[in-house]
Write a protein that binds this DNA or RNA. Structure first.
Lengths: 143, 143
DNA sequence: GCGTTAAGTGCAAGTAGTTGCAGTTGAACG
DNA sequence: CGTTCAACTGCAACTACTTGCACTTAACGC
């Protein structure tokens, strides 16, 4: 968590886990890790296609699933019809999504520390709370 | 929150909010409220089709969106490819979904009370935590 | 009841993401 | 290096859900 994830380090970890290191995977991996915050599958697809025009959407989706399972990225559906991917070592903020007006507000990490601790202690569950989406009703829409 | 939601009461509320009371809506509304716990759009569609064979999927989806906005149902994507709908006055439990093995465990409501209070106090946000999905890694997959 | 009209419905086409399958290729072993 | 083979890729078909549009109808006033 403390040290930054580089594409090379992640690639070696994937290899250690028994996965093969294909050029497509390397390019997708680099593209996600280079992203400032969120990326969508389409953005990744376009990014990789510049270097490697033959890439397919299936490969992007399957690689992202692999990276998620391996713990390098998390994905969030903010309700906008497109899933957002982001590296786990970045973007430790969260979203409050109003189900009435669709507005999205950001929340600090520390609001969740109590929950996270409790889930680990009581349920032995390691919650991925690095980028969390909470649905509900904002103050403006409650009136 | 304390009193049970009946189809008639919900129907009147919808009318008060300016929505029209169509037979399709009434049947979908009854079908959700009668459901024990979760329902998918397809289950609702099949249920309503018994009485009203002309119903379309669009109507089911649009009605569920309306019921969600009006606060009668909540929806959750447990990662199984289909969204689950359920009445807000039932099923106040939550899910821990392992992103590695896909297992789903249930959690009690009280784990979230602190978070809910904090979101309301600090962000003036009324979080819908009646049926919540938390992704992460279960104890079995952390090893 | 009857007419008016904006809300609602059904259909068909569209979008994001998934999956089965045949062909390709990274990597392990000789 | 060359062979082997399961992991991986690309394609095309598919699923869940959404949306635009023309037609229908609930609800309100008369």
């Amino acid at each position: 968590m403390a040290e930054a994830i580089t594409a090379e380090r992640a690639a070696r970890s994937l290899q250690d886990l028994g996965y093969r290191l294909t050029p497509q995977r390397m390019m997708i991996l680099e593209a996600v890790l280079e992203s400032e915050d969120h990326v969508t599958a389409e953005e990744l697809y376009e990014q990789v296609r510049k270097k490697y025009p033959h890439i397919s959407f299936s490969t992007v989706y399957r690689t992202m699933e692999l990276l998620r399972e391996s713990g390098f990225v998390t994905q969030t559906d903010l309700g906008g019809g497109r899933v957002q991917y982001h590296p786990v070592d970045k973007a430790t903020h969260h979203h409050l999504i109003c189900q009435v007006c669709g507005s999205v507000d950001e929340v600090d990490q520390d609001v969740f520390s109590g929950l996270q601790r409790e889930l680990r202690e009581r349920y032995n569950f390691d919650a991925t709370l690095t980028h969390f989406a909470i649905f509900g009703r904002c103050g403006r829409c409650r009136d």
